[in-house]
Write a protein that binds this DNA or RNA. Structure first.
Lengths: 196, 196, 196, 196
DNA sequence: TATGAATGAGCATTCATTCAT
DNA sequence: CATGAATGAATGCTCATTCAT
């Protein structure tokens, strides 16, 4: 009998080994490079992944899973809803520096190609963050920190931050992204604060 | 001196002739195609433009200038600051449908490559829109439609819309983009209205 | 000795299981697919067959054996030598439709690669058909249907049909292959008929 | 002004330079090899040919044109229709040795892929040879060498030879192809001779 | 004996850019 | 000034075969 390999765990294993290179090179990384960085042959990649997109996607998933786990951890350690909001956004911009590069590539690809799987993934992913945001806002409402209608503003808040991310990547208008994000969240927050 | 002016006007002339093709084919257009559509030789492109980016960029400029001109026209025909806000964003999403395709590609490129010129351009461009937005908000304040602090929210408003654009392109979460944008602008607007 | 017999019968067994797939996919079938269709591992193929050619070849043998058996059956049911001639050729063109696809691929490979085994096989196979044809013609002579020299024309007859097969596959000149073959056999037949 | 090149004559020129290599390597030749053998860059091939098939096809055309020209020359130098028949077939088998290899590849390709252009070409080509054959037979009839109905046998004759070609390539049954062809043509000829 | 995981050679094609004319 | 012919780097993917278990 031949060695039996758990295809799924091997996928993960390869993905993990390729993580660093993808973060360095972005989508421009070649299959050859990925294979080398994983210490396997080019053909082996195709034993575990359908095509280049498939492996890049797997690594992306890996990174985002890590990110989400840590995000939840960080959120637990905060008290007020405002703090939570800040953590929510600063986390991505400040702590997960690596992920931003990939996220940019992900955005770039999803904006130009119309890959259904990526779109589905983005949908699922964004829904997840909306949920977290909703929970934060609802908690704030419950704690009398925020007006009742605050929860309606989750899209405003999230997309403002997304927009700021784009702005900070695409223009020279933002010197200090963390400050800028904080400042604008504060602005919104002021309007949503109870008794403002 | 005369030469430089000529060079510049020829640049414009070529760009104008290539406008349609760029809108059709997006950034994937080839130099050969552009040259043919301008009725000139491939080599001639390189007499007037440094490289492919340069010409694509020139055409982009042209398109955005047109867009801006029409935007100002539309804004003149509106009355309240709220109307103006709506026009400001709907214009791009609804009326300038073609431009969106290019804009997506522009975003995709600027997000991944770090082309200084494109960044400068995006900076200039965004500043310009911020200015318009500021004017709208100031006018609203002057007309007692908006609270005094409303003007501080220009970044919130703009980037929320940018974020919504991304969301509508990248996820399946938005069925009707115009409605969604309107809804969220209304939400912000409520908070910024005088006596809200 | 026993082992060798086992090896051989296992070869046949595998070949039988792969028959359908080869007819479906032609020579472009992959070893993986063949192994799967035989319900065995890829490596096991190489226990029983030297290489891909070897297994494809074995299956081909199998198919042609079947063909030959049925051909003889059909021939038994005919009376005149002319009928037999028609059956002989129409059988392949009309009844064994699937086999033609493989035969074409077989021809293509044997024409380009110079595989000794395939050549030997083709030699054996063609000799066999020549023999059948010779028998038919001799019978016709015995029955006073054909001139004595008719048997010399076996190569003329056979290869004319082979040539017509190629023509019908490679050009647009033949609309109805069966008719064309019949027509040309008739032409030859007229010349070979006793008292023509 | 740039150097102006007659695309069509350059095509021919490249094809001529690649002729030898194609004859040596057959369809398995690579674009790189062809380019090198023509002393040009790989990309230049694609300036003059749509794809690999296109260039191979062009070279094939070239070879067959040469062949046809020489064939007509040879035919002029013969007297009786029987001689002409022999020349017609021996020419290909004996004199145009190179062409056979390519013809085999051509057959192989046309048998497996269903390239419309190649099929059209084969149709045109075969029609041309049928015409020559028809002329030979008609001349023989006019000269009282052949029976009137002889012309009907052009397909029989041609395809018999085609079949013999295949047989000689694919089996070991034919030691001396020229003799075999001659023998079988003689057989047919005897039947078609006036007063046979 | 059976397996299937691992392998890597092999190849057509595109296109921005250059530069000789 | 204008041209367009020439270029060649760059890359994803397949699949027959091997061999460790």
């Amino acid at each position: 009998m031949a060695k039996i390999v758990d295809k799924n765990s091997k996928r993960k294993e390869i993905a993990i080994k390729c993580k660093k290179l993808l973060l360095e090179k972005g989508m421009r990384v070649t299959i050859s490079e990925l294979a080398k960085s994983a210490g396997i042959g080019k053909g082996t990649i195709y034993e575990y992944f359908k095509n280049k997109e498939d492996i890049v996607f797997e690594i992306l998933n890996l990174l985002i899973d890590e990110f989400n786990k840590e995000l939840l951890n960080k959120l637990k350690k905060t008290n007020t809803s405002f703090e939570k909001l800040l953590v929510f956004f600063e986390f991505f911009y400040k702590d997960y520096f690596e992920l931003q590069k990939i996220y940019k590539e992900f955005l770039a690809i999803t904006l130009t190609s119309s890959n259904k799987e990526m779109k589905d993934y983005a949908t699922k992913s964004k829904s997840y963050y909306y949920e977290i945001l909703e929970n934060i806002l609802n908690e704030g409402i419950k704690n009398k920190e925020l007006k009742k209608k605050a929860v309606k503003y989750k899209k405003v808040i999230y997309n403002m931050c997304e927009g700021l991310f784009i702005e900070s990547e695409v223009t020279n208008l933002i010197k200090n992204r963390e400050k800028e994000v904080k400042k604008n969240i504060e602005l919104i927050y002021k309007l949503l604060k109870k008794d403002s």
